[in-house]
Computed example of a mutant assay.
Amino acid sequence: MLRFAHIEYLWGLAAIPLFLLIFLWVNNWKQKALKALGHRQVINKIVPAVSFSAPKIKFALFMLAFAFLVVGIADPQIGSKIVEEKRKGADLMILLDVSNSMLAQDMAPNRLENAKLAISQLIDNLHSDRIGMIVFAGEAYVQLPVTTDYAAAKLFLNTINTDMVPTQGTAIGAAIELGLKSFDFKNGTGKAMIVITDGENHEDDAIAAVKKAVDQDVSVNVIGMGSEEGAPMPVYRDNKQVGFRTDSSGQSVITKLNEAMCKEIAAAGKGTYVRATNANSGLNIVTSQIEKVQRKTYDAKSFKDFEDRFQYLIGLALLCLAIEFFITNRKSVRLSNVKLFEVRNG
């Protein structure tokens, strides 16, 4: 298994396209300057020792060195041994609403990002419990099957956005039913769901799905995102906010927390309802209730003895820089005198 000790440093790779654009701009400027001096063959005779391909090779080596260095600083680690161990925990399924109304900014920075931050903090506090994630809007999809791999859970969490589900709506019932199908009821561990939603545009029979969950000893808890006063629904284009959604009369569409529906689902699911705020996501209150869920010992496989591999990447970076250093912008006299394809007369 591969992991990074400092995965945040990989953002440094985003600088490579910037460097490439700068290099292409400078190279284009040089080409125009050379054309202004005269024909390429004439210039080659004036400065026969100058290599026009060397800068490209040097730049490619520099980019390789930079990439190796960034990945090396992130410290890739490989699990060298798999061990089986006994864990005692429960199965927890997060059902996250990704409808467009979750982009409303009555919670900072918006409802969805606030919820993702809270889930990330929840994952950090897990020890032996397994966690899975389902995203839903008008339809529901499994984002992460139930697992103890918390690092993978955070990676999948970071990719969640409102574009993942093309059909708009709030199909809580469908999400709950999908969550039930995703659980392994043969392992005997206690199970619980946490629905994180604003309840806007609720369309299917969530109560019927909740009753199915209760019949299988799965509690359904709800965290309400947003405010009863509501907020305008922003519109984004090319990842930039360009305004707010309006109705047929030109008035801003206000999306509000449907707290009554959230409370009804939590009550039917024998769970807890909490309304999140900027100061408190409410997950700590819900998880304290979930602690009461029966936990059972199960077998789990995990990687141990992770070994650092940064030294190999740093070595490759230094090698690329060394090669780049010894490449000059002058042609090799010996190589330039070799005419492999020249036709000689007589």
Rank of each mutant, 00 (worst) to 15 (best):
P109C: 12
T197P: 00
D75K: 13
L340T: 11
Y312I: 10
V333D: 13
Q241P: 05
I94T: 04
I160S: 07
L95I: 09
A118I: 04
G12E: 00
A209G: 04
D106T: 13
N221T: 03
A60F: 12
L2E: 04
L283R: 09
R237E: 13
N114W: 11
D204L: 04
I285Y: 10
A279V: 12
M233A: 06
D97A: 08
N337Y: 08
G271E: 01
L319V: 04
L316I: 01
I94C: 03
D149G: 07
S101F: 02
M102G: 00
L126A: 07
V242L: 11
Y150N: 04
L321A: 11
V146N: 00
G230A: 10
R3W: 08
I196R: 01
K32D: 12
K240C: 06
M261Y: 14
G230K: 08
Y141R: 06
K270W: 01
A140L: 03
S219F: 08
F310P: 04
T147M: 03
L2I: 12
S101I: 00
K81C: 05
K212Y: 05
M107H: 14
V338K: 08
D91L: 03
A60R: 10
Q168A: 06
L283G: 06
V42L: 15
Q251R: 15
L316A: 10
T148Y: 09
A213M: 05
D299G: 13
I223G: 06
I134F: 08
I94Q: 02
Q241H: 09
P17D: 05
E8F: 00
A115C: 08
E8I: 01
A67T: 11
S332C: 07
I285Q: 15
A36G: 04
G230S: 11
L69K: 01
T246S: 12
V135H: 06
N284M: 09
K270C: 04
E291W: 00
T167F: 07
G269A: 02
N337L: 13
F52Y: 13
D299E: 14
L117C: 04
D97P: 09
I160R: 09
D129F: 07
A14F: 14
